[in-house]
Simulated assay, not measured.
Amino acid sequence: MIGDKYKYLDKGSPSDKINYSYSQYKGKAFLDEWAISRKEFLTEGQINTENDEPRKKEIFNKEFTPTNDLLDFLLEEEVNFKSYLNKINLWVKRFEVTKKIYSDYNELMRPSNRNNFMDFSLYAKFGQLMAQLFIELNRYQYLNALLKINDIIISNKERLNQNEMKLCKLSVSAEYEIVRDELTKRSLD
């Protein structure tokens, strides 16, 4: 079982919130458990990058924007996501409260339907966005959100189809590299 000692994996997520409150510090043992959960996930199956679809350029041009379109737009190489930081930061705050990524959002980052949150490709893309933001801005709020996103992803690995698995592995791999780099910087590796 993936990371059976890492306590932040819950197959009931995202329907059930994973409780991160008052987490006990466990030092290197915790980091080892975290690393095992990520390595086991990343070594399952192969990533096939063939037939990737082109990304659309559309953001908040209607009452509710599909999350996939929003994330594709923000992940475009040409997009300066710094100009969208207020919206992204609001989105991160909303995620931190709900631990859910919904199928669409309005300009206030509120969903049209609070029951549509089980598309794990959206979690993976949101994770990729959090990784990019952390790498560019070095703000730990994005790494924190990325860790939680990937806990949800790994908790639900049995539910992932092949395309979702490919996207999710990109998110988990980005997180793994970021955390390993951070640990190396602090000589904790």
Rank of each mutant, 00 (worst) to 15 (best):
N68R: 13
D72N: 11
F64Y: 15
P54Y: 03
F134Y: 15
T98C: 05
N115E: 15
E107N: 12
Y123W: 06
L146Q: 10
D119H: 11
G127D: 05
K62D: 06
Q132R: 13
Y140L: 10
M118C: 11
K99A: 10
L133R: 01
N86I: 11
L75W: 09
K93Y: 03
F64S: 03
N61S: 13
L137T: 13
N61K: 15
Q128L: 15
N138H: 14
S112G: 09
L129C: 03
K148G: 01
R139N: 15
K125R: 14
A131W: 01
L133C: 05
K100G: 02
P66N: 12
I88K: 11
E96A: 04
M118V: 10
Y84R: 08
L74T: 04
D151M: 02
K93D: 06
N51A: 05
N106F: 04
E107G: 08
E107I: 15
P66C: 07
Y123M: 02
P66D: 14
Y84W: 11
E50S: 15
Y142R: 06
V92A: 07
I101H: 10
N150Q: 05
I59T: 07
N48K: 12
N86Q: 14
E63L: 13
V79C: 04
F60K: 05
P111L: 05
K56C: 07
F73I: 06
